[in-house]
Design a protein around this nucleic acid. Structure first.
Lengths: 255, 255
DNA sequence: CCCATTTTGCGTACAACGCACGCAATAAAT
DNA sequence: ATTTATTGCGTGCGTTGTACGCAAAATGGG
């Protein structure tokens, strides 16, 4: 129905699971599942069918177990989501060495990596992470970003604001891109059919004389994709950041 | 559960309702509701309780009618959403005259208006508008934005990309802001309690030596809100746009 | 070796969701 | 007066997360 929220469940319990702080009990039947198996299955289902298709029943069916068996390993769906979010940040090849890059190239690289993360896991940008849980992968990611931005000369808070601004833009544009791509599959109506369905009413509106600028717009006005928006917005933001740093630098030299 | 999508229902029917293209039938009992009443009620409920609380049953209860009575006026919930989205774009005081503003002041003003729209209707930035239906209010908004940006000298498509880039950033930052504000109410846990719950695991991680930069971050690194991010990102984008136009202008003079 | 305890597996049942179906009442057209 | 069309709306469908509680498996202690 609406947004899934990170950090909505039992935060303490989620952290225990994220950082693997629980000891295996010695009694009872040997478990047939692992937490890793459940999280991996959940990510696969979300990747393939979308977050709205992800249900405890769906994960259980995928794994060939009863729905309530999952609740032996995790308190609930909220905590499963927390684990999924950290899981997808894992860097299989380890942390790449980018110490040779300037801040601009590094931020551009980071933005593209985030974009790729959203392409690989199209549900990811739709999760509310206002209250993020910091697992090992998430912490590693933030560590590596801050390490590479240190040479910019910004305060820690300024760096955090830069990262958050850029991250917000990338995530939003990725969301629109994903929504655009999935709209045809989800509705069964092509993009052309969609706009054709609006044409009768819009033609009348254009003829009314109330919207002269709209009526006069070039045919290719909307003929771009979110990838165009991503590239344009990214370069404008980085250009603006260069101006900001240049002004900061010349102000420093004045003292 | 997940995102609500504009343009998901019967597009043709939504357009008829948006542009009021249906004639009132002459037979049968006089209707006790109007489309306007239903849409206004739905917007009020979404404003007060969030989009996840918006259901046909909820709207019907609010209006004191049976759930299925609503289906006499609109095909379904998807079309109701389309009407809501156009409804909230209505400018009560008409289109403001901003012909005296330069493009930068105008874009800044537009960004702030969009921010305010998201504050007044906190559910708005959470709706997928990859397939927007253009109603009278929506069309009027786009008409007025393009009219004021014409003097920038950009192509129609370039203007559209600028507007979309900025709009994506504002919406995304507004989402985070709204999620941040609502998190405490939604979970019953304050922000301090939330971070305190993570502290034991994070303290261990800091002690491990694996995250030296994170361990060394200033205490106020994350002590900012989405309003800070909004202001910073907005100015950087507009600065970047100025550079873009300056380069465009100097390239033009070279020919 | 036996019993108690703990853990794993998982079925049942709960309320709310959107909306197809179809009936009763209202009101205009013939 | 009858027919036709519209409005109002109850019923019933499958899906959702998870509390509750029982059966089976496996270990610890006596």
């Amino acid at each position: 129905m609406t947004t899934e929220h990170a950090g909505s469940g039992n935060v303490h319990r989620s952290m225990e699971l994220l950082w693997d702080l629980c000891e295996r009990p010695s009694r009872g039947p040997k478990p047939g599942l692992t937490l890793e198996t459940i999280v991996t299955a959940a990510v696969e289902i979300a990747d393939a069918e979308g977050l709205e298709a992800l249900s405890m029943r769906r994960v259980a069916t995928h794994l060939g177990v009863g729905t309530m068996s999952l609740y032996r390993y995790i308190p609930g769906k909220s905590e499963l989501l927390d684990l999924m979010l950290d899981h997808v940040l894992e860097m299989p090849d380890g942390v790449p060495d980018m110490s040779h890059l300037g801040w601009r190239e590094f931020l551009e690289r980071t933005a593209r990596e985030q974009w790729q993360l959203c392409m690989s896991h199209p549900w990811y940008p739709f999760v509310d992470q206002a209250r993020p849980l910091l697992g090992p992968n998430g912490l590693e990611t933030v560590e590596y970003v801050f390490r590479h931005l240190r040479p910019m000369g910004l305060s820690d808070q300024e760096m955090a604001v830069v990262i958050t601004s850029l991250s917000n833009f990338v995530e939003s544009t990725a969301r629109v891109y994903i929504n655009e791509k999935q709209a045809e599959e989800r509705t069964g109506i092509s993009n052309d059919e969609f706009w054709a369905a609006q044409a009768p009413a819009l033609d009348e509106a254009m003829k009314s004389g109330q919207f002269p600028v709209m009526a006069d717009l070039a045919g290719d006005t909307w003929g771009f994709t979110s990838e165009t928006v991503f590239e344009f917005g990214l370069q404008r933001f980085l250009d603006g950041l260069e101006s900001f740093l240049a002004r900061r630098s010349s102000a420093d030299h004045e003292h």
